[in-house]
Design a protein around this nucleic acid. Structure first.
Lengths: 141, 141
DNA sequence: CTACAAGTTCAAGTTAACTTGAAGTCAAGC
DNA sequence: GCTTGACTTCAAGTTAACTTGAACTTGTAG
């Protein structure tokens, strides 16, 4: 069993973040008699998965939903993990495609001078105009 | 001269956001005798530029820095605009490259079962471990 | 036994990019 | 003249993903 500092050092994730993940139900821990957290080594792989998924652009909520599909009664196998990431490739491909569209718009649209809201659909695609709710907006979100 | 509602409707950006951009010095307006904002039509192109730059991933602060390089004494020309976006192509290419690395890691790394913090550099590249400051972290930021 | 590091909880702060609400002013139609 | 909609400012709220601080307890080395 690992202490929170062990896990933090090995994963590069701050202890405060680990407690936060636990509060959100993304990882679990047992307690020593003292009340201190003790982690199973398998938590490291779970954390690696979380970090990876974040880089792909998933929110913690989405990641939690994925993790909930892992078997609860045993340590997940290689197959269990690889099945989770099924839909991700498509998601990444979509983002790459968007970036490539933006990249060609950079020369074709700004360069040619047509960057005007009335005529340029790169400057104002539907999903930019159709924003919803409060809080910051991210171009990939 | 356009009212704030005119500009909002034509750009798809909420009036509150337009006031916010002005507060940040990204756009400018004059005032009617009543105190109401009046915009020059050229502000639409400026807003289009802001929206485009945001989709590429620039923060408002960075966008402000770019906009500050436009000539202040006249309405910017086609050339003025296209010179601003010089460094962006490279930036987009870097992001595409990162996504492609992540995509191959998806099959090679999660699929093969090597996704462990100790051994997998996709799970824990330097820039994930080396995070700094408070606030949310984004995988592209 | 005494330091001092490491752990705990809980509330509040941080960042970006806005939105929402309150409280009041201005403009246009009937 | 009245109502209704558009506009103004300013303060406070929103979201995500954490961090920071306060106040306190545990574990360990000397």
């Amino acid at each position: 069993m690992l202490t929170i500092t062990d896990v933090s050092r090995r994963s590069g994730i701050a202890s405060s973040a680990l407690r936060f993940y636990e509060e959100r139900g993304l990882i679990a821990s047992e307690r020593a008699g003292s009340g201190h957290r003790r982690y199973h080594r398998s938590v490291l792989r779970r954390i690696a998965f979380i970090a990876f998924a974040q880089r792909i652009g998933l929110t913690l909520e989405e990641i939690g939903a994925e993790l909930a599909r892992l078997p609860a009664d045993r340590v997940p196998s290689r197959r269990d993990w690889s099945q989770l990431s099924g839909a991700w490739a498509e998601r990444i491909d979509e983002r790459i495609a968007e970036l490539q569209r933006l990249r060609s718009g950079l020369t074709e649209c700004i360069g040619c001078g047509c960057l005007s809201i009335d005529r340029c659909n790169l400057a104002n695609p539907a999903d930019v105009a159709g924003r919803k709710g409060p809080g910051p907006r991210y171009w990939l979100g």
